[in-house]
């Protein structure tokens, strides 16, 4: 299978769906790029994810907008209920705050308030996460906020394969989807089929199976968790690593199944810890899987603080393998690991 970067995988997903379905459009700041025209200056977004779409599909379907997030999402939500399948790009997830009304009160509510008769097939793509020295206003991991809102689906891919399949599913889905791409993952490579494929939402990926503990991790933290898992294996501790892929809907069954097999749970999330994905999974397992647990549930998250700009502080802010290993070791008794 060919190897591709996550950037290429995302680009391929959009291009293939735009070829298949003429109602799919792309709208956002600099999605064509450059001076608003086609050709060499059309960079395709800050990280080049939409590069080439303007050339192939024209400026009627790939629309550069002014810097006004509320107008981008308002336009896209309106276009969605009117029959198009817009992919709106908002650069940084941090900026979604300026269009919460369009997202929370409009797009997320249409199906409910119109008695199930309205569809809002809208995808909102944005970059998430720390690690590129972009400061407190461009580095947050805000998936938990959107997970809280019924009517939204929330996708946090960790690999190029997942990114393509989940974005195709997001475009084909009839509800608004918040699609969050971690800035540090655009250049990672992985096997991605050339053909189109859709990964259903609410289906976790189990990357590794062990018997001592389960680690649930998202997005970039899946890679940190896998690193921790291989280091733990050399110490005789075998862990299961679960990537839920989507926080809404959440694959509770797979998480519970893995906790039942291992009896221990560590949740890794680079978001802030209060009212978060990590607390949500911890509460769900305490509620539905308490009998499986042999030890307390541990969370490895960012602190309840903004993302620091100083590089050393930013690096200390994001969960790393050492913290995950310490969390797992704190709940896996020595005699258990040796057994």
């Amino acid at each position: 299978m060919p190897k591709k970067s996550m950037r290429t995988a995302l680009n391929e997903a959009m291009a293939q769906e735009m070829r298949r379905d003429p109602t799919v459009i792309v709208i956002g700041e600099d999605v064509v790029g450059g001076q608003g025209g086609l050709g060499e200056t059309s960079v395709g977004g800050v990280f080049g994810v939409t590069k080439g779409l303007g050339e192939e599909f024209g400026l009627d379907r790939v629309i550069d907008t002014p810097i006004t997030e509320s107008a981008i999402i308002g336009t896209a939500a309106g276009a969605a209920v009117a029959g198009l399948r817009p992919i709106a790009e908002l650069m940084f997830v941090d900026f979604l705050g300026v269009c919460f009304d369009q997202i929370f009160n409009q797009a997320a509510k249409f199906r409910y308030m119109f008695g199930g008769k309205a569809r809002t097939p809208l995808v909102i793509r944005a970059m998430t996460g720390a690690g590129v020295r972009a400061g407190a206003q461009h580095s947050q991991a805000l998936h938990s906020i959107f997970t809280h809102i019924p009517g939204l689906k929330v996708v946090v891919p960790s690999s190029p394969y997942d990114a393509k399949g989940l974005l195709i599913q997001a475009i084909r889905d009839d509800d608004p989807v918040i699609f969050l791409e971690h800035k540090t993952l655009y250049d990672i490579e992985g096997e991605v089929p050339d053909e189109a494929y859709a990964i259903p939402f609410g289906e976790a990926n189990v990357l590794r199976e062990g018997r001592h503990a389960t680690i649930v991790a998202l997005s970039r933290q899946v890679h940190t968790a896998m690193d921790a898992a291989s280091q733990l294996a050399s110490k005789g501790i075998e862990v299961t690593v679960v990537d839920p892929r989507t926080t809404s809907p959440l694959d509770e069954d797979t998480i519970l199944e893995c906790v039942e097999e291992t009896g221990r749970l560590v949740i890794v999330d680079e978001a802030n810890p209060r009212c978060s994905f990590a607390t949500d999974v911890a509460a769900m397992v305490a509620d539905k899987g308490f009998a499986f647990l042999k030890a307390p549930v541990r969370m490895v998250t960012a602190p309840h603080a903004p993302v620091p700009f100083a590089p050393v502080l930013e690096d200390a802010y994001v969960p790393d393998a050492a913290r995950i290993i310490a969390a797992v070791e704190s709940i896996v008794a020595n005699e258990e690991a040796a057994a």
Partner: peptide
């Protein structure tokens, strides 16, 4: 039949067509 084997199979099942 590991979860990883099953995931490899559904990878194929997800492809259009």
């Amino acid at each position: 039949v590991t979860k990883a084997l099953a995931e490899e199979v559904v990878k194929y099942k997800r492809v259009d067509g």
